[in-house]
Amino acid sequence: MASTTISLVVRPRGRPIKNLPESITVGREEPSAQIFQRIADAAKFPVNRLRVTKGSDGSAVPSSRDVTVHQTGLRDRSAVDVKDLGPQIAWRTVFIVEYLGPLLIHPLVYYGRPLIYGTSAPPSRLQTLSLILVTLHFLKREYETLFVHRFSLATMPAMNIFKNSGHYWIFSGINLAYWIYAPTAPTAGPSNPLITYGGLALFAIGEIGNLITHIELKNLRRPGSTERGIPRGLGFDLVTCPNYMFETMAWIGIWLVSWSLSTGLFVVIAVGQMAVWAQKKERRYRKEFGDKYKRKRFAILPGIY
Rank of each mutant, 00 (worst) to 15 (best):
D291M: 05
R150N: 05
A275L: 15
E29A: 09
K280L: 07
G198K: 02
I215N: 04
P190G: 06
R221M: 09
G27Y: 06
F246D: 00
L146G: 02
G272T: 01
I170T: 11
I105C: 11
S152T: 13
V69E: 10
G189D: 10
L74K: 07
V276K: 12
V52N: 10
A185H: 08
N192E: 13
K140R: 14
F95Y: 15
P123I: 09
R13V: 03
L256M: 15
Q37K: 14
T263M: 15
T226F: 02
Q279P: 00
K281Y: 04
I35N: 09
D81M: 12
V257C: 12
Y197T: 04
H167F: 14
P102Q: 07
M274V: 02
T5M: 10
V82Y: 10
R49D: 08
T72C: 08
T25V: 15
G189E: 10
A299W: 15
F246H: 02
R38T: 05
R297K: 15
I205C: 04
G118S: 11
F151S: 07
L115H: 13
E288H: 06
Q88W: 07
G209K: 01
T119P: 07
T68H: 06
S124W: 06
L133E: 03
M274S: 02
I105N: 07
R221Q: 12
G206A: 09
K287S: 14
Q273E: 12
L74I: 12
R13S: 14
L238P: 03
L104W: 04
C241F: 01
R51G: 11
I208Y: 02
A299M: 15
S32A: 13
I269W: 13
S260K: 02
K140M: 05
H106P: 11
H167Q: 12
G199L: 08
I35R: 07
S7D: 12
N243H: 14
Q71C: 02
D291N: 12
T187W: 05
N243A: 00
I205F: 01
R92N: 08
R92C: 02
R295T: 13
T263W: 01
T226G: 11
N175D: 04
G112I: 07
F203K: 08
L8G: 01
L202E: 00
D84H: 09
L194V: 13
F45Q: 07
N48F: 13
N19R: 14
E288Y: 01
P190N: 13
N219C: 02
W259N: 15
I300E: 03
T128W: 06
V82N: 09
I230G: 11
A154I: 02
P12C: 13
D41Y: 06
E142T: 14
I24M: 11
K281N: 12
R11P: 00
R284H: 13
I304F: 15
T25N: 09
V239M: 00
C241N: 13
D237C: 03
Y305T: 08
I116S: 03
P46E: 05
R297H: 09
I170E: 01
P46C: 05
I208N: 02
G86A: 11
S124L: 05
R92D: 06
D66P: 00
Y168Q: 07
K296I: 04
R77V: 04
V82W: 06
V134D: 03
